[in-house]
């Protein structure tokens, strides 16, 4: 009897599609090592000069630094605010918790560019334009839904009586959360934090309206520089990002079984 396994043609199509997903990545990596400023197949000559160029360029270094600081601080802030909120929502101790959840998840639904222009007008109005703190808060708004989603999902997979057991055994509310609940939802939180970090790291539509020239982030820099055409320096910096992504993804998979949380 047929057990509905994929047939050979379907498998081949599927593998081609998966390969298609990797093509731009491969092309970028090859370009970054190629002598010529445009890529040919096969590439002509190998070099590391684009890496050297980019990594000695203060504009790029500054953008990398800005991006990392922004992503780390907004992820941490989202994590603290989001986990606290998720815990309260999960316990359903508050009336209207569903409406509140919907509100907190709304930044996922409203187009980022709309959030960007709304915040641009707002910070201009209150006179905070150019403040790095504004940028961090803006990134909290767009990253917190990911934390909230994974925290709520992890909490709902938890046996409530485990935390109750800790309480009965003499732990106060915070101790029970710290010793029992938190370790049990940690894999989900790692995944959520990773999503938040990646979202912050790649954001253009909100950042571009709020960041001053000195606050330019890496994605903004790449986004703006390609208007001048293909630049191997961009390929080099992209390759660095690709390598970082691969490492982080593999680590997350090993620590937390990341693919289960996507």
């Amino acid at each position: 009897m047929s057990d509905m396994k994929p047939t050979l043609p379907i498998s081949i199509v599927a593998l081609l599609v998966v390969a298609f997903l990797q093509v731009p990545v491969l092309v970028v990596v090859l370009t970054s090592f190629s002598e010529t400023s445009y890529l040919t197949i096969p590439p002509q000559g190998w070099t590391l000069k684009w890496f050297a160029e980019v990594l000695s360029d203060p504009v790029y270094l500054r953008a990398i630094w800005n991006s990392v600081i922004l992503a780390v601080s907004s992820t941490l802030l989202s994590l603290v605010l989001g986990v606290a909120a998720a815990y309260a929502l999960f316990r359903k101790a508050i009336p209207g918790s569903e409406a509140i959840t919907a509100l907190l998840m709304a930044p996922l639904i409203v187009p980022s560019v709309v959030i960007g222009v709304a915040m641009l007008q707002y910070v201009t109005l209150v006179g905070l334009r150019g403040s790095f703190l504004v940028l961090i808060v803006a990134h909290v708004v767009i990253t917190v839904p990911y934390i909230l989603r994974s925290a709520l999902a992890s909490l709902s997979g938890l046996d409530v009586s485990v935390e109750e057991a800790a309480r009965v055994l003499g732990a106060d509310g915070f101790t029970a959360f710290r010793l029992v609940t938190l370790p049990l939802i940690k894999p989900g939180l790692v995944a959520g934090a990773l999503f938040a970090f990646v979202t912050s790291m790649e954001n253009v539509p909100v950042t571009i309206f709020l960041a001053s020239a000195r606050q330019t982030t890496l994605p903004i820099l790449i986004f703006s520089s390609v208007e001048m055409g293909v630049n191997p320096g961009v390929a080099a910096i992209s390759t660095l990002l690709i390598i970082a992504t691969v490492i982080v993804l593999l680590l997350a998979e090993r620590w937390a079984g990341f693919h289960k949380f996507v």
Binding site: V18, L21, Q22, V23, P24, V25, V27, V28, T31, Y38, L39, T40, I41, L194, V198, M201, E202, V204, L218, P219, I222, F223, V226, G229, V230, V234, A235, S238, L241, I242, T245, V246, V248, L249, F258, H259, V262
Partner: peptide, 26 residues
């Protein structure tokens, strides 16, 4: 392999397509 592109910076992915699709591209 499906998640990897998703986690990769959007700007980088789009840049990859520029390299591929531009007039003198791959």
């Amino acid at each position: 392999l499906v998640i990897f592109p998703l986690m990769l910076n959007l700007v980088v992915r789009s840049f990859g397509w520029i390299v591929l699709l531009t007039n003198r591209g791959v």
